[in-house]
């Protein structure tokens, strides 16, 4: 469905320096540096997949999305999506995709949500019957009915984001690009949005490419992750494999009676320590949990012990560290 081959894109960025003198100088002479936003990127995505597209800020995620949605023309490489080259047949191609930029609204700010939907129907030339069916389904599954007649500016962020997602699905796209769809949402809205994404993926067979910094989004939704750093693809595979690769670490939190002397456990890395509590990271490949607890009980008077698998966030941090991005 999506085949990306050797995509490269570089930008010229003006060097910015601090200070009034430098700023004045920059008015007349500007030094440019070339930033390779994408560097020989290749991957392919099958119909019906949900792919998590992750990487630190500035890794090239947005650039990839922009190329794939036909906004940007790359320097080199090919990209074929449903038989189209996005930047060549823009108008014909974009009918088939939906794009949600989490940080930007596509709704008209001062009018009721439903008015925006109707205008989008006209922009995408959605047949009335299809529009009605889609709208009913979206209103029901996203629970929009209570606020669909309110102007967008009166909605909460969570309500607005649900409307944004609905707006990008009115024309029954085959592919949905979600750029940070849960940014700034509260827990309830986040869960509602995730549930809905999963539903349309299953029921309408929409292929979804999701970029996010929230690893719980990825955990809840994506079967497959693409990790990108400095414009290169670093990892392409299942989330579980990633977890088993780095997940041998456990985090152990210990409460004990006041103990002024720091604890020393062989094979464990101390993450934080106070006279009453310490948190350590244990590599179970080197030392077993029971050994650590035995050592602990010899050193302190244990009150409580909690053992947790390493959160996915930490795995990603470790991964970024490993790839030096």
């Amino acid at each position: 469905m999506i085949a990306v081959e050797g995509l490269s894109k570089s930008f010229k960025v003006a060097k910015r320096s601090t200070g009034l003198r430098q700023a004045t100088k920059a008015l007349f002479f500007r030094e440019h540096t070339t930033v390779n936003a994408l560097n020989d990127l290749s991957f392919s995505i099958n119909p019906g997949e949900i792919v998590g597209y992750i990487g630190p800020n500035g890794a090239g995620k947005s650039t990839t999305i922009k190329v794939m949605s036909g906004i940007l023309v790359p320097d080199r490489g090919t990209c074929t999506i449903m038989g189209y080259t996005p930047w060549k047949d823009r108008v014909a191609y974009v009918k088939n995709i939906g794009v949600v930029f989490g940080q930007r609204s596509q709704l008209w700010w001062d009018v009721p949500v439903i008015d925006s939907f109707e205008l989008l129907r006209d922009i995408y030339k959605v047949p009335d019957k299809e529009y009605k069916a889609n709208l009913d389904l979206l209103i029901e599954t996203l629970e929009l009915s209570t606020f669909i007649k309110l102007p967008v500016r009166q909605l909460s962020l969570g309500q607005r984001m649900r409307c944004e997602i609905a707006a990008s699905l009115l024309h029954s796209p085959k592919i949905l690009f979600l750029d940070e769809p849960t940014i700034g949402l509260d827990a309830v809205s986040k869960i509602a949005v995730r549930k809905f994404i999963k539903t349309i993926n299953l029921e309408k067979d929409v292929t979804i490419i999701l970029t996010t910094h929230d690893m719980f989004d990825i955990e809840a939704l994506a079967d497959r992750v693409l990790l990108i750093g400095k414009g290169k693809l670093l990892y392409d595979g299942r989330l579980n494999e990633l977890r088993s690769r780095f997940g041998s670490h456990k985090t152990i939190t210990v409460d004990y009676r006041v103990m002024e002397k720091p604890i020393a456990i062989s094979g464990a890395e101390l993450l934080s320590w106070t006279p009453e509590r310490c948190v350590m990271s244990v590599d179970t490949g080197k030392v077993t949990v029971s050994e650590v607890i035995t050592q602990l009980s010899n050193q302190v008077d244990l009150l409580d012990v909690a053992i947790e698998a390493r959160p996915i966030e930490e795995i990603i941090v470790q991964l970024y560290k490993e790839y030096q991005i």
Binding site: K66, S69, G70, I71, R90, V91, A92, V94, K95, I97, V99, F101, R104, Q106, I123, Y124, K125
Partner: peptide, 14 residues
């Protein structure tokens, strides 16, 4: 400046 022009580019109209 706000990047909203990108939004126009992903819509199937001139």
């Amino acid at each position: 400046r706000t990047g909203d022009f990108d939004r126009l580019l992903v819509r199937p109209r001139s």
